[in-house]
Design a protein around this nucleic acid. Structure first.
Length: 896
RNA sequence: GGGCGGUUAGCUCAGUUGGUUAGAGCGCAGCCUUGACAUGGCUGAGGUCACAGGUUCGAGUCCUGUACCGCCCACCA
């Protein structure tokens, strides 16, 4: 391979990113067992299972965030030498996919019912062929380094088998059961949905008070019930009052007649009734209200269903109402009651009806025979895992939400009356016996009465999408087959996902993983927040504030997008994505590119040999080498610490500072002078250059997990270190290596002086370009390093001549500058009164600040409770500070 | 009705287990057409850390309460 050794003169991600992507594509570095892998056999594997995006969806900025974070984790682990598996896939998203496809076929003049199940599913398969791969292709543009060879689909063969096996196992364990129960029915989607898929919003409506006449009594004689749903009166089978309610005590046991249906129903005493609400008397409609259902079961009431699947009044209801849509029926019934004189009052009332998350229809509680998963025992095990710390949630405060939800969990309705999805593997014989089979061909006969397989009828319902998603951490690894992947990569280390699907998905994976695999599917659950617009609003198509990641990539590059997203992220917290943030990230990439361009172009002509090891380059570069090594080691340490605690944005910020403030603004500026100075020994200039290369190399490694393209692109142009492979993606993660010490601190001292000189010049409005004489008093060791850094100090502070001695020359005029242990005098050519005043003011400000700090520190040290109780290191620190301040003040005063 | 989170510079946000002088980006002011970069450089201004108590030698950080903002959960007809 002929690597380009020069970087383009400007940073153009649209050119760099495809080139780098092509190099990655030609390699198999994403595969933990691939030939490009740097995995060390003795390190434990690192596994992340990608949350599968909906197969029909397009890339949005939320995807961009999770892809970035997971890719970051995977790349870092890979560079650390761990066998790293990031397993990608897509979700069939049954209800969402049907929703989308239904719209498409509607435009073709078809519908689900016009096509029928078989043709509809064929159409769906075609649709899947078109969309599968699109979203994952978009993930690749973001730089995702998943193991594409292992890409999975929740509707593929292996998943299907996993679903059947999981269900059969749960059934065997008594954790899956079929029963008639009230479910949330969506009249729009024509399916039941789980509690989680409903959204409750407060809405203004009415509460109606209706009189039900007593059986055999006068119409004016009766009991008044309060209801928000008068139309359900057709299904009433009782009226309930509180047993202790004196108003109604004598009515309990009597019967009232339900209007229109002319059904006499009992008045019951049941303490679920709140005496203070409404009239204290409740109509009971067991087939259409969860509370009423409970009452019905307690009192053995019949439960007639009066609304059909479209939420129309059933056909066998009384005349005018039969077939009416539910809200039309409500009006009609209220009017009819009024006409009969049974409507007592109408009052405004706010209620919170549950609406379908997908279609926004008001959900209708409906009595239906469905499959349920018994969640209590599963939830207890999931709770045990987080309580013992076997699985950790980041951020930790989500554990409370987790605890609450799993403690209060209700059984999970997994039946969906949809077509696209995994069909429930349950068969029924003519006698109604249930046979559950994991076999793809179905059971060989009824498990109870032995009825022939041909006579069995399979359940027509399919599973809730989240059932197959709940198996994802192990179905992707081949379960139920005991594959080597399953043994090696289960459980995964991190589940990274949004906190909005903590219950939907994470809890289900935990429950099913523990039940079916025997241990929790992940060690850490990392939850990210939502990406919002600059005003903090949710992004939505209707608001028109959606940011399209693909056009951002076109515009500023995937690296800048990733950097911006990582910079803004904190565990569990939402972030705002603003143009400023993106611009800043783009500028950072540009800065890095130009720094690299400079370094490569500044190679001294004499440097022709192989790249020396970092240590010998450092040693040859004197103070600069020691300093560079100390700075870089500190950066490595901070980045490692931040990443260990999932502090992604802090890590990004640290790399940003190390690159911009330390490497570009200080290291390069210092090195520039030496490199350009032909009078310096060639060996020294070579060492300085190699040190610069080493620093850049390390920064690229640190940044690579966040911004993989640009770092890979630059790294390719750098001279290789001994033992490096062809890709930065599989190069070793840096380890800190520093001798630190005074040698490194010397540069910081001199840089501090440079800064003070610049500040003094600015505050006295001396011309920026003028060369001014500077005399410096420095201790012997610093004086020596100052001599070696002379050229750099001169250029950076713009001072000439520069004299360095143990003491300042006596009796001269000028501006006194104190920087740490260094004292200096800057001598402007002809200091006028304004300059002198400005200088005096500057020094006075410094004195005031220093004295205030000194006073504070002295007060603290004078307090025996501080010296007695504070740790010795803190006290020693305060003492050191006092000494420094006294010294500084003395030197400032001396020049005053 | 419960629960959780937030409130730090003009704006957007960091701030590890309580420890000396609270940080960054953007914005703002002044200066700089210096051979990597004006998508840049240098210097600077700007904060009673929402409020009120408490614990502590010491609180942005821990505890209690209050106010406002946001989110989640909940069968009151």
């Amino acid at each position: 391979m002929s690597a380009p050794r020069e970087l383009g003169s400007s940073y153009t991600p649209s050119e760099i990113e495809p080139q780098v992507a092509a190099r990655w594509a030609a390699s198999d570095y994403g595969n933990p067992e691939g030939s490009d892998s740097v995995a060390k056999a003795d390190l434990p594997p690192f596994t992340i299972i990608m949350p599968p995006p909906n197969v029909t969806g397009g890339l949005h900025v939320g995807h961009a965030l999770f892809v970035t974070l997971e890719d970051l984790l995977a790349r870092r682990a890979r560079m650390e030498g761990r066998p790293t598996l990031w397993l990608p896939g897509v979700d069939h998203a049954s209800i969402a996919a049907q929703f989308v496809l239904d719209k498409i076929i509607a435009e073709e003049g078809e519908s689900r019912s016009s096509l029928g199940r078989e043709r509809y599913l064929q159409r769906m398969d075609r649709f899947m062929e078109e969309t599968r791969g699109v979203i994952l292709g978009q993930f690749r543009r973001l730089g995702a380094s998943a193991d594409w060879g292992r890409t999975r689909f929740t509707m593929d063969e292996v998943s299907s088998r996993a679903v059947r096996t999981a269900f059969a196992t749960l059934y065997e364990h008594g954790l899956a059961y079929r029963t008639e129960a009230l479910v949330n029915w969506c009249p729009g989607c024509k399916t039941s949905v789980s509690d989680l898929e409903s959204i409750s919003v407060e809405e203004r409506g009415n509460i109606w008070e209706i009189r039900y006449p007593l059986e055999g009594g006068a119409p004016s004689d009766g009991i008044v019930v309060a209801t928000t749903r008068p139309e359900t009166l057709l299904g009433d089978t009782a009226v309930a009052v509180h047993p202790d309610d004196p108003r109604y005590a004598q009515l309990i046991g009597k019967r009232v007649v339900i209007p229109f249906v002319d059904r006499a129903v009992p008045i019951l005493g049941d303490d679920f009734v709140d005496q203070t609400f409404g009239t204290g008397a409740v109509k009971v409609t067991p087939a259409h209200d969860p509370n009423d259902r409970e009452v019905g079961l307690r009192h053995n009431l019949p439960a007639p269903t009066i609304l059909d699947e479209a939420a129309h009044i059933v056909a066998d209801a009384p005349k005018p109402f039969a077939g009416m849509e539910r809200f039309a029926a409500r009006k009609a019934i209220v009017a009819a009651l009024d006409a009969l004189g049974l409507l007592v009052s109408v009052k405004p009332h706010t209620a919170t009806p549950a609406r379908c998350q997908r279609s926004n229809d008001i959900l209708e509680p409906r009595l239906r025979t469905q499959w349920f998963i018994r969640t209590k025992p599963l939830a207890e095990k999931a709770l045990a895992a987080t309580r013992t710390g076997k699985t950790r949630i980041v951020p930790a405060h989500f554990e409370k939400t987790w605890e609450h939800w799993l403690t209060e969990i209700r059984d999970w309705n997994v039946s969906r009356q949809l077509w696209w999805g995994h069909r429930i593997p349950a068969w029924y014989c003519a006698d109604g016996h249930i046979t559950v089979s994991a076999d793809a061909e179905g059971p060989s006969g009824c498990s109870e009465c032995g009825a022939l397989a041909e006579s069995l009828v399979q359940e027509s319902d399919i599973f809730d999408t989240w059932f197959s998603s709940g198996l994802w951490p192990f179905s992707t690894l081949g379960w139920p087959e005991q594959t080597s992947d399953l043994k090696r990569y289960y459980p995964s280390q991190v589940m990274e996902t949004g906190h909005d699907i903590l219950f939907f998905w994470v809890a289900r994976m935990m429950m099913l993983g523990i039940e079916l695999m025997g241990e929790p599917p992940f060690e850490t659950i990392y939850l990210h927040g939502m990406v919002r617009d600059p005003e903090g609003q949710k992004m939505s198509k209707t608001k028109g504030n959606v940011v399209d990641p693909l056009s951002l990539i076109d515009e500023i590059g995937a690296d800048a997008l990733r950097f911006a997203l990582v910079s803004g992220t904190a565990a569990g917290a939402d972030q705002r994505l603003s143009p400023e943030k993106l611009e800043n990230a783009r500028n950072f990439m540009n800065k890095l590119w130009n720094a690299a361009r400079f370094v490569l172009g500044a190679r001294p002509a004499e440097v022709t040999g192989e790249r020396p090891d970092a240590r010998s380059a450092q040693e040859g570069a004197g103070e600069f080498g020691a300093w560079m090594s100390a700075r870089i080691s500190c950066a490595i340490e901070d980045v490692d610490r931040n990443l260990a605690g999932y502090g992604f944005s802090e890590a990004a910020q640290r790399i940003y500072d190390a690159t911009w403030a330390e490497y570009c603004d200080q290291a390069i500026e210092l090195a520039k002078v030496t490199l350009a100075d032909e009078s310096r020994p060639a060996a020294e200039r070579a060492a300085v250059w190699w040190t610069l290369v080493d620093g850049l190399d390390t920064l690229l490694r640190l940044l690579h997990p966040i911004a993989p393209f640009i770092t890979e692109g630059i790294w390719e142009a750098l001279p290789r270190r001994n033992g490096d492979g062809p890709l930065l993606a599989t190069a070793a993660w840096p380890v800190r290596d520093t001798k630190g010490g005074d040698e490194a601190r010397a540069i910081d001292q001199w840089l501090d002086l440079v800064r003070e000189v610049r500040a003094a010049r600015t505050s006295t409005k001396l011309p920026a370009g003028a060369w001014l004489p500077l005399a410096v008093a420095a201790p012997a060791d610093l004086a020596a390093s100052g001599e070696r850094l002379r050229a750099a100090i001169e250029r950076l502070a713009r001072v000439r001549p520069l004299t360095i001695a143990l003491n300042l020359p006596a009796g001269e005029e000028g501006m006194l500058i104190v920087a740490g242990v260094l004292t200096a005098r800057l001598t402007p050519p002809e200091a006028d009164a304004t300059t002198r005043d400005a200088d005096r003011a500057r020094r006075e400000r410094e004195l005031v600040a220093a004295r205030a700090q000194l006073a504070a520190a002295e007060t603290r040290l004078a307090d025996p409770s501080f010296t007695g109780k504070a740790p010795a290191t803190v006290v020693a620190g305060a003492e050191r500070r006092v000494a420094e301040l006294r010294d500084e003040i003395a030197r400032l005063e001396q020049g005053a």
